[in-house]
Design a protein around this nucleic acid. Structure first.
Length: 292
DNA sequence: CAGGCGTGGGT
DNA sequence: TACCCAAGCCT
């Protein structure tokens, strides 16, 4: 699409307001972009930053990570959450070493074939690491489009065809402009057009925003999915894995029993971690992060 | 496809 | 204080 006032306003705003993030710098490798995108799946930037720096120093290439046991990736993941991502990142690095000459693949199709890479991450890596003119649609972009264009407070629970079509329509034709547009809309959603308490006073598209024009009507769609936590298996898994992360030596079962007193649930969670490949049971009855 | 999957900071 | 939710993915 040819540039609209909407584009100009967002691009000008981004030029002035963008954060200086290491994975956005021109010297950042595709591998650096790839690692950042996986870490940023459901985890805020401020918590990703130090861990990303550590990973880049320790594993500057896919081959470097692939050469280590997957458990080291899980340990170095620290408390970013959703630790299966660490396992998938290690598996992706292995695939790159074995099938892609040690490089991050450049095409959306090859990227999405990697473990832990879905529609969003494949588009993000293709666009940010390789300059592809492809629409990058994450939760920030969906929210900005929902408000500025569709006039509703929140996007649908899941990505719809209409949203993908809209994002493709809004993507500038000039590849150089499209590249900046993708990150600029994301940044607008992250800094100004936030899920709660949007800073409309600071918004570059305030005067053309459909949601503002409609009087900022409250969300009127299907109930949005919450995430239970207290007492769930996720909490138990988190506690079990924390013990293993923090131990340099295999942990006796008795020590794992201390983190949760309900045996049925605790055993179910430990078994789940083992079948997920996040925990390795040893022959002597102890447990550790996977050593292979 | 609805639900499972970590963690910690903001409102 | 209790939620809410953060650059999703997988089954």
């Amino acid at each position: 699409m040819s540039p609209l006032p909407l584009h100009r306003a967002v691009l000008d705003w981004y030029a002035e307001a963008q954060r200086d993030l290491p994975w956005r710098r021109p010297e950042c490798s595709p591998w650096g972009v790839f690692v950042s995108e996986v870490m940023l799946q459901q985890t805020p930037v401020v918590r990703v930053l130090p861990v990303w720096q550590e990973w880049m120093h320790r594993w500057p290439t896919p081959a470097a990570l692939a050469a280590e046991p997957s458990g080291e990736a899980v340990r170095a993941w620290g408390r970013l959450g959703y630790p299966r991502r660490a396992l998938r990142l290690h598996a992706a690095a292995t695939a790159m070493a074995e099938r892609h000459g040690g490089d991050v693949p450049a095409s959306v199709v090859d990227l999405q074939a990697l473990p832990g890479v879905g529609v969003y991450t494949a588009a993000a890596v293709a666009a940010f690491a390789f300059g592809d003119r492809v629409a990058v649609v994450d939760t920030n972009v969906r929210r900005v489009h929902a408000r500025a264009v569709s006039g509703v407070e929140h996007a649908a629970p899941a990505l719809t065809r209409a949203e993908s079509d809209l994002a493709a329509e809004l993507l500038p034709e000039d590849p150089d402009v499209a590249r900046v547009w993708n990150v600029a809309v994301m940044e607008l959603g992250a800094l100004v057009c936030t899920a709660r308490g949007p800073r409309c006073d600071d918004c570059p598209v305030l005067t053309t925003c459909a949601w503002v024009a409609a009087g900022r009507p409250a969300y009127d769609g299907p109930p949005r999915r919450g995430q239970a936590w207290a007492g769930t298996d996720r909490q138990v898994r988190g506690r079990l894995l924390q013990v293993l992360r923090e131990s340099d030596t295999p942990v006796p079962a008795a020590r794992l029993e201390q983190v949760w007193d309900q045996e049925i649930q605790r055993e179910r969670c430990l078994d789940g971690l083992v079948s997920d490949g996040l925990v390795e049971p040893l022959a002597d009855g102890t447990y550790r992060l996977p050593g292979g």
